[in-house]
């Protein structure tokens, strides 16, 4: 996934300028990392260079002049094709929690205590997200993105719970490998 595809998707709603695209982004992807303005402008320039977007004109609206961009035919095909592709299930495990638990075992630390503290942090975040999505008047994108985040945190927690239960044998195994 790239900023290119996200901006193409946001331009599909109609011509817009950089400032408004950033706002559209933050509104449609409320739990995502906010887009930086600089990133929006450099990406827009590359989209124009590649023929995926074009300048429609400028509008000043009383304030400073702003460049309006719109999707080209090619850009429209590109974003539709991208959104239709099935995403490959992640082939590698590259997660910080997992890695830290393994490193904690390797360095002779206390993985159980680490998992307990991590669980508390996850639960705290899950409570925030639950409050967000159940607040009166929460809009669809907020609910969808909170659900997405909640399910991923829940998956982490289930892995952490199983790991906690396995820790005795897991630690024994690592020590055997060390001795071999």
């Amino acid at each position: 996934m790239s900023t290119r595809h996200i901006l193409l998707g946001l331009l599909a709603k109609g011509p817009s300028h950089g400032y408004e695209l950033k706002q559209r982004h933050d509104e449609h992807f409320p739990q995502a990392r906010p887009l930086a303005y600089g990133q929006v402008y450099t990406t827009l320039q590359r989209l124009v260079r590649d023929g995926l977007a074009e300048v429609e004109g400028t509008d000043s609206d009383g304030g400073p002049e702003r460049t309006l961009y719109r999707l080209t035919e090619k850009g429209s095909r590109e974003v539709t094709a991208w959104a239709g592709q099935v995403t490959p299930p992640a082939p590698f495990v590259a997660n910080e929690i997992f890695t830290k638990v393994v490193v904690t075992i390797l360095t002779g630390g206390d993985p159980a205590a680490h998992l307990l503290a991590q669980r508390a942090a996850h639960m705290e975040r899950m409570r925030e997200l639950t409050a967000l999505k159940t607040a009166p008047g929460a809009d669809l994108t907020t609910v969808l993105s909170a659900d997405y985040a909640l399910n991923h945190l829940d998956a982490d927690l289930r892995w952490m719970t199983t790991t906690q239960a396995r820790l005795a044998s897991l630690t024994a195994l690592t020590m055997e490998v060390d001795r071999a």
């Binding site: 307990l116 669980r119 508390a120 996850h122 639960m123 705290e124 899950m126 409570r127 997200l129 639950t130 159940t134 909640l150 399910n151 945190l153 829940d154 927690l157 289930r158």
Partner: peptide
Amino acid sequence: HDATVAAYADREVRLRDGAVVGAEVPA
């Protein structure tokens, strides 16, 4: 036993083998 359900509560108390293991302080 479902964390997404526990997230509706003010805090979580965890039981293991009939005793509390990790009780969080309320936020």
